[in-house]
Amino acid sequence: MRLSTVILPIYRWHEQGREVWQRAERLGFHAAYTYDHLSWRSFRDKPWFGAVPTLTAAATATSRVRLGTLVTSPNFRHPVTLAKELITLDDVSGGRITLGIGAGGTGFDATALGQVAWTPRERADRLDEFVPLLDRLLTEGAVTQRGTYYSAEEARTIPGCVQRPRLPFAVAATGPRGLRLAARHGQAWVTTGDPALFETGTPEQSRQAIRGQIERLDAACTEIGRDSAELDRILLTGFTPDRNTPLDSLDAFVDFAGRHAELGITEIVIHTPIPDSDWDTDPKVFERIATEAPAQLGR
């Protein structure tokens, strides 16, 4: 079981940002991710910086911790320009980047460019085109492709990624189409649990839902002849019915993580504390979890 963290892109770099990312490395996290949004929920009218520049700065300030997005979506990205940014970021980091990618939702990102928010089906359609094209762009030197939503015309992405054949994709998905994308193109799969259970479900119901998601992921891998054990399984916490209760104490977290490890989760991601927010957890407990939980979970 690996333990990672999410650092929201809310910090001015020279005032606090550098130290927050360096602290994540000192605490021994496997990876430090950030959200790839234009703004997000209660932070919409507060500082919020770009994900790729933030990760680039973090790459120059750290040397070991993996870095990435949880998650990037097509809402305001295009595969050609994103591929160029990713190969640059992978180069700056020395090959430490993971791209979390998903279909996105109906929040501020969905309309910030002036478009009408896409339906769930259109988001799935777009992701179906986006991920395979991005895969090609990151593994081939020049790509021409015509699609319904995304096209490339002799798009050059030389010299490619430091990581070969490309940087890993962590595909966020719960539906059948997304799970098939994860099976075919992912090196990892990401879940936040079942959104339908967030308000009224129980922790046990949530675990059963995640068990079902993993079973469907395994089936999608079997369908294409892939060993599902090749995929890491990442749980981004804070969106299950127990919210942040697992961060109340070291023992509570170890119990939570152990129960999810039994389901097949291989990496758990916790939010770096932010006062007066949904992630207002005790920094001392957070540090204990970061430094002591991995040993108890057998990392």
Rank of each mutant, 00 (worst) to 15 (best):
V6D: 08
I7P: 03
L8I: 12
Y11E: 07
H14I: 09
H14G: 12
E15M: 11
E15Y: 09
Q16P: 10
G17L: 04
G17M: 05
G17R: 02
R18N: 08
V20Y: 01
R23G: 10
A24F: 11
E25C: 08
E25N: 09
R26M: 06
R26I: 02
G28Q: 03
H30P: 08
Y35S: 11
Y35E: 07
D36K: 02
D36S: 02
D36Y: 05
L38K: 05
S39V: 03
S39R: 01
W40Q: 07
R41C: 00
R41P: 00
S42E: 13
F43E: 00
K46H: 01
P47Q: 01
P47F: 01
F49C: 02
A51C: 08
V52R: 07
P53C: 05
T54P: 03
T54M: 08
T56R: 07
A59S: 12
T60Y: 08
T60D: 09
A61W: 12
A61G: 06
T62A: 13
T62L: 15
S63Y: 03
V65A: 05
V65T: 08
L67P: 12
G68Q: 06
T69N: 08
S73R: 09
S73E: 06
P74Y: 10
N75R: 01
N75T: 13
R77T: 07
H78P: 05
P79E: 10
V80T: 15
V80N: 10
L82H: 11
L82Y: 15
A83Q: 14
A83N: 13
K84W: 14
K84N: 14
K84D: 13
E85T: 09
E85S: 14
L89W: 11
G94Y: 07
R96C: 12
I97K: 02
I97L: 11
I101M: 08
G102E: 05
G102K: 00
A103F: 04
A103V: 10
T106V: 14
T106S: 15
G107N: 10
D109Y: 09
A110R: 10
T111Y: 05
L113T: 12
G114Q: 06
V116A: 08
A117L: 04
A117Y: 02
A117H: 02
W118Y: 11
P120W: 04
R123S: 01
R123D: 00
D128P: 00
D128K: 06
